[in-house]
């Protein structure tokens, strides 16, 4: 990653922390992740997904959300996690990436956390080799928290296709 891009990304990250106090937590392959609540449009039970021949590997296919064709990605695949089965808890988060709302398949939706700035450890202090969709670690309840949330930047995460 170039330095310029890193700088922009860090601004974005701190922006996310400053403006989005609330995060929606969900689990994926046993870990807890969270996206800023304002980026989440809707949570759906997974309907049948129409796969698209020759689309990229992490694109599961499309669904119709009240008549609107919506691309669904498998977040496990995108984050290079092991594959998992669809269960009754599987949900699709409709996430706004700016120019498009994308369906994001997750294992289970937990709850909304309200995080104070001192409950967030920014990725920028963890070194320079982290992925650009990784904003930081959230510790609800402060240090010594049982729950660790991996905070994601929806735009960096979904603006790839």
């Amino acid at each position: 990653m170039s330095e310029a891009k890193l700088a922009i990304h860090q601004t974005d990250a701190s922006e996310i922390v400053r403006t989005a106090h609330e995060f929606l937590a969900f689990s994926l392959a046993g870990e807890s992740y969270a996206l800023p609540l304002p980026s989440i449009r809707e949570i759906l039970k997974a309907p049948p997904i129409t796969e698209i021949p020759r689309a990229e590997y992490d694109i599961l296919g499309i669904i119709s959300v009240r008549g609107r064709i919506t691309t669904v990605i498998d977040l496990r695949r995108r984050l290079h996690l092991e594959e998992g089965p669809l269960t009754k808890d599987t949900r699709i988060l409709l996430v706004d990436r700016g120019d498009e709302v994308i369906g994001v398949l997750v294992d289970l939706v937990h709850q909304v956390y309200r995080l104070h700035p001192d409950e967030i450890e920014l990725s920028s202090v963890m070194g320079s080799d982290v992925s650009d969709h990784f904003v930081g670690i959230g510790r609800p309840g402060g240090e010594g928290s049982e729950t660790l949330l991996i905070l994601l930047d929806p735009i960096a995460l979904l603006r790839r296709n």
């Binding site: 698209i52 021949p53 020759r54 689309a55 990229e56 694109i59 499309i62 008549g67 609107r68 064709i69 919506t70 691309t71 990605i73 120019d99 498009e100 709302v101 994308i102 979904l158 296709n161």
Partner: peptide, 13 residues
């Protein structure tokens, strides 16, 4: 209905 920007690269549809 056309695809969103995320599927622009897919050919044939």
């Amino acid at each position: 209905k056309s695809f969103g920007p995320s599927l622009q690269k897919v050919k044939g549809f």
